[in-house]
Design a protein around this nucleic acid. Structure first.
Lengths: 126, 126
DNA sequence: TTAACATATCACGATATCATGATATGACAA
DNA sequence: TTGTCATATCATGATATCGTGATATGTTAA
């Protein structure tokens, strides 16, 4: 049992016992993934895309920059809902805005956002 | 007020009143976004990425295909947790698997998954 | 058979997230 | 300085999601 650890190619490839599962494979992949903090940050980031209201806002802003009341009207949502979701989008660096008098004109932070949205849409449409 | 509806270029571009917000803009973007059902499906899809355990699994599988117990060990997570998350990933068409005797070897469904994961990671790392 | 192992499902209490009503802020016009 | 409009924040109850213990299923070897 102990000997097997040092084999680069494990001949008994179907074996997967609790204290000796494919160790070489496990060690190899473990080194190549991000750390705990990065996974936490990344999941917070993706969580933002997991809400239809926020996706709708992202979808609109991928077409053109808009003020809050235009977003409300285009989506037929009340102002509180939109404003709350915009706050979350802002806090997570997904949208930015520019004040223009009374108005606030929102836009997507960068192209990553649009790419993620579009690849996701492509995926669900097969 | 009523006349303004038909202007292609609205001269008073800063106006944004409740019943007459930039109508041309609103109408234009409203037509170009997905429908309610697609937003619902897309948000369910992205929700999957919004959990660190699932992201870790996706991250591992973007390196190579793995069986359940290797995932458990590489991530130091108990079997129930991994198996439950794999079920969710399967149900959402994010991973697939192949039975090999007692084992189940998991892999990512397609390249969209890897792309979304990697663009997201790029985004948070600036 | 029986045992051991790999994996899956069920049930549950703790926690997080949602949309929204009430209310606040801040800009402009009268 | 008062009113109105655009937007933001706060508080809340309903709902969803999380990780996990207990348990079930299915495969292989003895």
């Amino acid at each position: 049992m102990e000997m097997k650890k040092n084999n680069l190619e494990n001949e008994n490839d179907d074996m997967c016992e609790v204290f000796n599962s494919h160790e070489d494979v496990v060690d190899r992949v473990r080194e190549r993934i991000p750390d705990e903090a990065e996974f936490a940050e990344l999941s917070e980031f993706f969580k933002i895309f997991g809400n239809p209201t926020r996706l709708k806002i992202i979808s609109l802003l991928s077409i053109e920059d808009l003020c809050v009341c235009d977003i409300c009207e285009a989506l037929d949502l009340n102002q509180t809902t939109v404003s709350n979701q915009l706050r979350i989008l802002r806090a997570n660096n997904i949208v930015k805005y520019q004040k223009e008098g009374k108005m606030a004109r929102y836009s997507l932070t960068d192209l990553h956002i649009e790419m993620i949205y579009k690849v996701g849409l492509e995926h669900i449409l097969e």
